[in-house]
Design a protein around this nucleic acid. Structure first.
Length: 272
DNA sequence: ACTGGCTCCTGAGGGC
DNA sequence: TGCCCTCAGGAGCCAG
Protein backbone atom coordinates (compact mmCIF):
# COMPACT_ATOMS: atom_id res chain seq x y z
CA UNK A 1 0.00 0.00 0.00
CA UNK A 2 0.63 3.34 0.07
CA UNK A 3 2.31 3.85 3.44
CA UNK A 4 1.99 6.90 5.67
CA UNK A 5 3.75 9.36 3.30
CA UNK A 6 1.57 8.39 0.36
CA UNK A 7 -1.62 8.59 2.41
CA UNK A 8 -0.56 11.94 3.84
CA UNK A 9 0.26 13.23 0.34
CA UNK A 10 -3.18 12.07 -0.74
CA UNK A 11 -4.79 13.83 2.23
CA UNK A 12 -3.06 17.11 1.41
CA UNK A 13 -4.07 16.90 -2.22
CA UNK A 14 -7.69 16.08 -1.42
CA UNK A 15 -8.34 18.66 1.28
CA UNK A 16 -8.66 21.79 -0.90
CA UNK A 17 -10.93 20.00 -3.38
CA UNK A 18 -13.19 18.48 -0.72
CA UNK A 19 -13.52 20.85 2.22
CA UNK A 20 -16.81 22.73 2.13
CA UNK A 21 -18.09 20.70 -0.82
CA UNK A 22 -21.44 18.95 -0.75
CA UNK A 23 -21.79 15.32 -1.86
CA UNK A 24 -24.32 15.03 -4.66
CA UNK A 25 -24.06 11.24 -4.82
CA UNK A 26 -21.92 8.23 -4.07
CA UNK A 27 -21.73 5.90 -7.07
CA UNK A 28 -20.43 2.40 -6.35
CA UNK A 29 -19.43 0.18 -9.30
CA UNK A 30 -17.85 -2.62 -7.26
CA UNK A 31 -18.86 -3.25 -3.65
CA UNK A 32 -16.44 -6.15 -3.14
CA UNK A 33 -13.43 -4.48 -1.59
CA UNK A 34 -11.63 -5.99 1.41
CA UNK A 35 -14.99 -5.68 3.14
CA UNK A 36 -18.14 -5.16 1.08
CA UNK A 37 -19.22 -1.53 0.94
CA UNK A 38 -22.29 -1.22 3.17
CA UNK A 39 -25.59 -1.12 1.32
CA UNK A 40 -26.72 2.13 2.95
CA UNK A 41 -23.57 4.16 2.24
CA UNK A 42 -25.03 6.00 -0.75
CA UNK A 43 -27.88 7.15 1.47
CA UNK A 44 -25.58 8.07 4.37
CA UNK A 45 -23.37 10.36 2.29
CA UNK A 46 -25.82 12.03 -0.08
CA UNK A 47 -26.22 15.74 0.60
CA UNK A 48 -23.51 15.86 3.29
CA UNK A 49 -20.81 18.52 3.40
CA UNK A 50 -17.14 17.66 3.95
CA UNK A 51 -15.86 19.57 6.98
CA UNK A 52 -12.32 18.21 7.32
CA UNK A 53 -9.96 15.71 5.67
CA UNK A 54 -7.77 13.91 8.21
CA UNK A 55 -5.45 10.92 8.42
CA UNK A 56 -5.03 8.32 11.15
CA UNK A 57 -2.31 5.74 10.45
CA UNK A 58 -2.91 4.73 6.82
CA UNK A 59 -6.60 5.60 6.98
CA UNK A 60 -8.08 8.72 5.41
CA UNK A 61 -10.95 10.25 7.34
CA UNK A 62 -13.53 12.44 5.61
CA UNK A 63 -15.32 14.28 8.38
CA UNK A 64 -18.95 15.18 7.75
CA UNK A 65 -21.35 16.79 10.19
CA UNK A 66 -23.16 13.43 10.29
CA UNK A 67 -20.17 11.16 10.76
CA UNK A 68 -16.90 10.01 9.21
CA UNK A 69 -16.01 8.14 6.05
CA UNK A 70 -13.00 5.85 6.69
CA UNK A 71 -10.97 5.02 3.59
CA UNK A 72 -8.04 2.61 3.25
CA UNK A 73 -6.01 2.29 0.04
CA UNK A 74 -4.86 -1.29 0.58
CA UNK A 75 -1.88 -2.28 -1.58
CA UNK A 76 -2.85 -0.73 -4.89
CA UNK A 77 -5.45 1.93 -4.12
CA UNK A 78 -5.35 5.58 -5.17
CA UNK A 79 -7.72 8.53 -5.03
CA UNK A 80 -8.05 11.16 -7.75
CA UNK A 81 -9.94 14.40 -8.13
CA UNK A 82 -11.44 14.34 -11.63
CA UNK A 83 -14.19 15.96 -13.65
CA UNK A 84 -17.43 14.22 -12.73
CA UNK A 85 -17.91 13.52 -16.44
CA UNK A 86 -14.57 11.69 -16.81
CA UNK A 87 -15.30 8.14 -18.04
CA UNK A 88 -14.39 5.49 -15.48
CA UNK A 89 -11.54 3.11 -16.23
CA UNK A 90 -11.33 -0.51 -15.11
CA UNK A 91 -10.93 -0.82 -11.32
CA UNK A 92 -12.50 2.59 -10.64
CA UNK A 93 -14.73 1.20 -7.88
CA UNK A 94 -16.52 4.25 -6.51
CA UNK A 95 -17.05 7.98 -7.08
CA UNK A 96 -18.06 10.69 -4.64
CA UNK A 97 -19.74 13.25 -6.88
CA UNK A 98 -19.29 16.80 -5.59
CA UNK A 99 -21.21 20.04 -6.06
CA UNK A 100 -18.10 21.52 -7.72
CA UNK A 101 -18.61 19.51 -10.91
CA UNK A 102 -15.78 17.22 -9.91
CA UNK A 103 -15.63 13.85 -8.22
CA UNK A 104 -13.42 11.92 -5.82
CA UNK A 105 -12.68 8.64 -7.60
CA UNK A 106 -11.28 5.48 -5.98
CA UNK A 107 -9.12 3.17 -8.12
CA UNK A 108 -7.82 -0.14 -6.75
CA UNK A 109 -6.93 -3.13 -8.99
CA UNK A 110 -6.28 -5.55 -6.13
CA UNK A 111 -9.30 -4.47 -4.04
CA UNK A 112 -7.49 -4.75 -0.70
CA UNK A 113 -8.72 -1.27 0.23
CA UNK A 114 -11.91 -0.41 2.08
CA UNK A 115 -14.63 2.19 2.59
CA UNK A 116 -16.63 2.52 5.79
CA UNK A 117 -18.87 5.14 7.35
CA UNK A 118 -19.48 5.63 11.03
CA UNK A 119 -21.96 8.03 12.54
CA UNK A 120 -20.28 7.75 15.93
CA UNK A 121 -16.82 8.53 17.25
CA UNK A 122 -14.49 7.41 14.46
CA UNK A 123 -11.62 6.88 16.92
CA UNK A 124 -13.71 4.12 18.50
CA UNK A 125 -14.36 2.34 15.21
CA UNK A 126 -12.99 -1.24 15.36
CA UNK A 127 -10.46 -0.46 12.60
CA UNK A 128 -9.05 2.54 14.49
CA UNK A 129 -9.62 1.88 18.18
CA UNK A 130 -6.48 -0.15 18.85
CA UNK A 131 -3.95 1.69 16.72
CA UNK A 132 -0.59 2.71 18.16
CA UNK A 133 0.67 6.32 18.26
CA UNK A 134 1.46 8.29 15.13
CA UNK A 135 5.19 8.11 14.35
CA UNK A 136 5.38 11.84 13.59
CA UNK A 137 3.57 12.76 16.81
CA UNK A 138 5.05 13.52 20.24
CA UNK A 139 3.91 10.21 21.79
CA UNK A 140 6.31 8.28 19.57
CA UNK A 141 9.88 8.74 20.76
CA UNK A 142 12.93 6.72 21.77
CA UNK A 143 11.58 5.97 25.25
CA UNK A 144 8.30 4.70 23.87
CA UNK A 145 9.98 2.57 21.19
CA UNK A 146 12.55 1.14 23.58
CA UNK A 147 9.82 0.11 26.02
CA UNK A 148 7.75 -1.41 23.20
CA UNK A 149 10.66 -3.65 22.16
CA UNK A 150 11.27 -5.17 25.60
CA UNK A 151 10.67 -8.91 25.93
CA UNK A 152 9.78 -9.19 22.25
CA UNK A 153 11.52 -11.92 20.28
CA UNK A 154 10.09 -10.88 16.92
CA UNK A 155 12.47 -9.36 14.36
CA UNK A 156 12.68 -5.58 14.72
CA UNK A 157 11.54 -5.03 11.15
CA UNK A 158 8.31 -6.95 11.74
CA UNK A 159 7.76 -5.10 15.01
CA UNK A 160 8.02 -1.77 13.17
CA UNK A 161 5.30 -2.93 10.78
CA UNK A 162 2.94 -3.86 13.63
CA UNK A 163 0.21 -1.24 13.90
CA UNK A 164 -0.18 -1.97 17.61
CA UNK A 165 3.39 -0.68 18.09
CA UNK A 166 3.63 2.18 15.61
CA UNK A 167 1.37 3.02 12.66
CA UNK A 168 2.06 4.05 9.10
CA UNK A 169 5.37 2.23 8.65
CA UNK A 170 5.08 -0.39 5.90
CA UNK A 171 7.47 -2.54 3.96
CA UNK A 172 9.42 0.24 2.24
CA UNK A 173 9.93 2.61 5.14
CA UNK A 174 10.66 -0.13 7.68
CA UNK A 175 13.66 -1.21 5.57
CA UNK A 176 14.71 2.39 4.92
CA UNK A 177 14.50 3.44 8.58
CA UNK A 178 16.51 0.41 9.72
CA UNK A 179 19.21 1.27 7.18
CA UNK A 180 19.36 4.88 8.36
CA UNK A 181 19.63 3.72 11.96
CA UNK A 182 22.25 1.06 11.19
CA UNK A 183 20.12 -1.72 12.68
CA UNK A 184 19.88 -5.19 11.12
CA UNK A 185 16.25 -6.02 10.20
CA UNK A 186 16.43 -9.53 11.67
CA UNK A 187 17.68 -8.42 15.10
CA UNK A 188 15.24 -9.60 17.77
CA UNK A 189 13.36 -6.51 18.95
CA UNK A 190 14.20 -7.23 22.58
CA UNK A 191 17.93 -7.02 21.83
CA UNK A 192 17.75 -3.44 20.54
CA UNK A 193 19.86 -1.18 22.73
CA UNK A 194 18.64 2.11 24.11
CA UNK A 195 20.96 3.93 21.68
CA UNK A 196 19.56 1.93 18.78
CA UNK A 197 16.02 2.75 19.85
CA UNK A 198 16.94 6.42 19.76
CA UNK A 199 18.52 6.11 16.32
CA UNK A 200 15.53 4.15 15.08
CA UNK A 201 12.90 6.56 16.38
CA UNK A 202 14.82 9.44 14.78
CA UNK A 203 15.24 7.51 11.51
CA UNK A 204 11.54 6.66 11.29
CA UNK A 205 10.54 10.28 11.77
CA UNK A 206 13.20 11.51 9.33
CA UNK A 207 12.46 9.07 6.52
CA UNK A 208 8.69 9.58 6.73
CA UNK A 209 9.08 13.37 6.78
CA UNK A 210 11.49 13.29 3.84
CA UNK A 211 9.17 11.04 1.85
CA UNK A 212 6.21 13.36 2.48
CA UNK A 213 8.36 16.24 1.19
CA UNK A 214 8.78 14.52 -2.19
CA UNK A 215 5.21 13.26 -2.47
CA UNK A 216 5.88 9.70 -1.34
CA UNK A 217 7.18 6.66 -3.22
CA UNK A 218 5.67 5.38 -6.46
CA UNK A 219 6.68 1.79 -7.23
CA UNK A 220 3.77 0.74 -9.44
CA UNK A 221 0.27 2.03 -8.81
CA UNK A 222 0.48 4.99 -6.52
CA UNK A 223 -0.44 8.47 -7.78
CA UNK A 224 -1.52 11.56 -5.84
CA UNK A 225 -4.96 13.16 -6.29
CA UNK A 226 -3.72 15.13 -9.32
CA UNK A 227 -2.43 11.94 -10.94
CA UNK A 228 1.26 12.64 -10.26
CA UNK A 229 3.66 9.99 -8.94
CA UNK A 230 5.78 10.45 -5.82
CA UNK A 231 9.50 11.03 -6.24
CA UNK A 232 10.94 9.43 -3.12
CA UNK A 233 11.81 6.28 -5.04
CA UNK A 234 15.07 7.86 -6.18
CA UNK A 235 15.95 8.55 -2.54
CA UNK A 236 15.54 4.92 -1.45
CA UNK A 237 18.77 3.52 -0.01
CA UNK A 238 17.93 -0.19 0.15
CA UNK A 239 14.37 -1.00 -0.94
CA UNK A 240 14.34 -2.88 -4.26
CA UNK A 241 18.12 -2.31 -4.56
CA UNK A 242 19.29 -5.92 -4.05
CA UNK A 243 22.77 -6.42 -5.50
CA UNK A 244 23.35 -2.70 -6.02
CA UNK A 245 26.06 -0.82 -4.11
CA UNK A 246 25.21 0.73 -0.74
CA UNK A 247 25.04 4.50 -1.11
CA UNK A 248 27.05 4.85 2.10
CA UNK A 249 29.75 2.14 1.92
CA UNK A 250 29.51 0.47 -1.49
CA UNK A 251 28.73 -3.03 -0.19
CA UNK A 252 26.11 -4.97 -2.16
CA UNK A 253 22.60 -4.59 -0.78
CA UNK A 254 21.14 -7.89 0.42
CA UNK A 255 17.62 -9.21 0.11
CA UNK A 256 15.66 -11.86 2.03
CA UNK A 257 12.13 -12.84 2.97
CA UNK A 258 10.90 -11.92 6.42
CA UNK A 259 7.35 -12.77 7.40
CA UNK A 260 6.45 -13.38 3.73
CA UNK A 261 7.66 -9.87 2.84
CA UNK A 262 10.83 -8.73 1.09
CA UNK A 263 13.47 -7.10 3.27
CA UNK A 264 16.53 -5.20 2.05
CA UNK A 265 19.60 -4.18 4.01
CA UNK A 266 23.29 -3.35 3.78
CA UNK A 267 25.34 -6.17 5.34
CA UNK A 268 28.13 -3.75 6.26
CA UNK A 269 26.15 -0.79 7.62
CA UNK A 270 23.56 -2.90 9.48
CA UNK A 271 25.04 -5.40 11.89
CA UNK A 272 23.10 -8.10 13.64
C1' DA B 1 0.17 -12.48 25.17
C1' DC B 2 3.10 -13.33 21.15
C1' DT B 3 4.41 -15.40 16.92
C1' DG B 4 4.16 -16.99 12.55
C1' DG B 5 1.42 -18.34 8.51
C1' DC B 6 -2.54 -17.68 5.47
C1' DT B 7 -5.70 -15.02 3.04
C1' DC B 8 -8.11 -11.72 0.06
C1' DC B 9 -7.17 -9.88 -5.51
C1' DT B 10 -5.28 -8.45 -10.15
C1' DG B 11 -1.39 -7.61 -13.09
C1' DA B 12 3.41 -7.64 -14.48
C1' DG B 13 7.48 -9.99 -15.60
C1' DG B 14 10.49 -13.98 -16.32
C1' DG B 15 11.46 -18.78 -17.90
C1' DC B 16 10.43 -22.35 -21.03
C1' DT C 1 2.17 -16.61 -28.53
C1' DG C 2 0.83 -19.04 -24.34
C1' DC C 3 1.23 -21.10 -19.91
C1' DC C 4 2.87 -21.30 -15.33
C1' DC C 5 5.29 -19.44 -11.65
C1' DT C 6 6.60 -15.63 -8.44
C1' DC C 7 6.10 -11.36 -6.62
C1' DA C 8 3.87 -6.66 -5.46
C1' DG C 9 3.20 0.20 -0.65
C1' DG C 10 -1.64 -4.20 3.90
C1' DA C 11 -3.35 -6.18 7.76
C1' DG C 12 -7.12 -9.03 9.87
C1' DC C 13 -7.68 -13.54 11.44
C1' DC C 14 -6.47 -17.98 13.23
C1' DA C 15 -4.04 -21.88 15.32
C1' DG C 16 -0.40 -23.21 18.33
Amino acid sequence: MPELPEVETTRRGLAPALIGRRVLALTVRERRLRWPIAADLEHQLRGRIVERVERRAKYLLLRFDSGTAIIHLGMSGSLRILAASAPPRPHDHWDLELDSGRCLRYHDPRRFGSLHFTAGDAEQHPLLARLAPEPLGPAFDAGYLFAATRRRSVAIKLLLMNSRVVVGVGNIYASEALFRAGVHPARPAGRITRAQAEALADAIKAVLAAAIQTGGTTLRDYVDPAGAPGYFRQELCVYERAGEPCRRCGARIKHAQQGQRSTYWCPACQRR
